[in-house]
Amino acid sequence: MPAGRETRAEVAVRAADDASEFERARRREEERPLVEAAIRGSAAAFEALYRLHVGHVYGLCLRMTAHPATAEDCTQETFVQAWRSLPSFGYRSAFGTWLHRIAVNAVLAHGRRRREATGADRPIDEVVADTLADPSLGEDAAVIDLEEAIRRLPPGARDVLVLTGIYGYSHEEAAAMLGLAVGTCKSQLHRARRLLGERLALEEEP
């Protein structure tokens, strides 16, 4: 295939992206009355917003924390924080994007509290992930699928990959959300891609 030509899969992804963009624009218009009602203090409107967005928020938290119970806590914290902060929501971004920023902060705050509680410089799962990243260390590195491979990435690399690769944020946006320099964000993504590629290639070996 000549360099620069899109594969069928990539064309399909782009078409899906266009459809998603249309869907997001439609959703923004639909949810605006709900946001306004929630700002005025309507818990019912806020519950409707929760129903609309909980899947995306939980998906983001789950992929960043790699731990279902922690992802549930962070999701709840995100919506509680959003409720408290709604009076200051100024439509400078889409409501969903605003929620994602709160979710990222909730995940980062949870990670910080956990490190403070354990006194560990590095989270245990980061150490485990680094160990598993070395294919010479045994058959455990043969992970099952892409989600599993993402789950086992070191947290810093995983955060960047989730935000840019799955949720479509730019390097600048992801760096701002994570409190990183853009250069750090790019190098973490490079690291994540390398580890994922190695892991998925390893999976294919007989």
Binding site: A9, V13, Y50, G59, L62, E72, L161
Partner: peptide, 23 residues
Amino acid sequence: ALEAALARLPRSVDPPRDLWPGI
């Protein structure tokens, strides 16, 4: 190929239980 595979992953994942009561 990796980017395309990542973009195909569902962005929305339903939590295993309703989290609204706690919120």
